[in-house]
Amino acid sequence: MKREHLLILAIVAALVAWPLLMGNYAVAQANRAMIYALAALSFSLLAGRLGWFSLCQTTFAGISGYTVAILGVRYGLPFPLVVLLALLLTTFSAVIFGLLTVRSRKVSFLMLTLALGQMVWALSFQWVDVTGGYNGIAGVRMPVYGGVDLNDTRIFYVMVTTVTVAIFLAMWRLYRSPFGLLLLGIQENEQRMRALGHPVALARFSAFVLAGAIAGVAGVFLVYDMGIMSPSPLGLGHAVWVLTAAVLGGYRSLLGPAIGVAILITLETLVAQYTDRHMMVIGLVLLLSILLMPRGLAEVLEQRFKRKSKPQASVTTTTRGE
């Protein structure tokens, strides 16, 4: 069995053990972490593969969350339909945003996603009739099926974990597929990819829409986790938080964004117990870690991993794909 398969098994085992060993608070924290790991994965798919830094991935999560809240609470549509429509609408938004951004380069891409994100954020508190303004829409809950309350922290954990693991596994395949390789090729040598006969714009656009859809999934879980949808998850603060987590963990690797989110949430929880100035402490930790590990924690771990294993054909792909 390959090392990476062992790693996957270990992660799955840990995720199964967590709710059995830990209390409700820790399970709830894990739920939140996995939701943000999906958002950070969505960011990293674009940043790591294409060199595109997006500030609107949390916006897609927000669009998804609002759709769930509005259709579920206001219109009382059934849960599966609500989720389906939320994902469809988010993907559709990603198609529109993608058409607007696909020709842009690094800095203009960042600025365009910032502008689009801010526009939707403004809409979310100004379009009061639909979104409920700053108060948002409260009472967003999952249904109870046959006596099983899907809102129960541990039941919710099972759902979030299953979906998150499935998405990460799918991305694991994608990162090592010819498509994933092509995205890296586009980041490093776009002109050459075109000359080799690859549809560069289509590949970029597809990655963008896919990343938007992943953020949409995160948004569905986020709104049910919070029970309320308000403008704050669409704000710049959240976008930057996700970016920070991805950079801290290492957005070039698959597990980096998840590691970054886990560290950031753990730090916030720990530091908040001791001091009110927790943002300062966290800022300091971030500063140090980015100075010491500019490529993120995941790649530091990979280097160790690589040094211990024998050089072989699959090592390079393993390490970058992880």
Partner: peptide, 18 residues
């Protein structure tokens, strides 16, 4: 593995070694 593009999106699922 990036040689021989055919104008279409390459597979998202197969390993690149294919």
């Amino acid at each position: 593995a990036l040689a021989r593009g055919d104008g279409r999106l390459p597979s998202l699922w197969q390993p690149w070694q294919s």
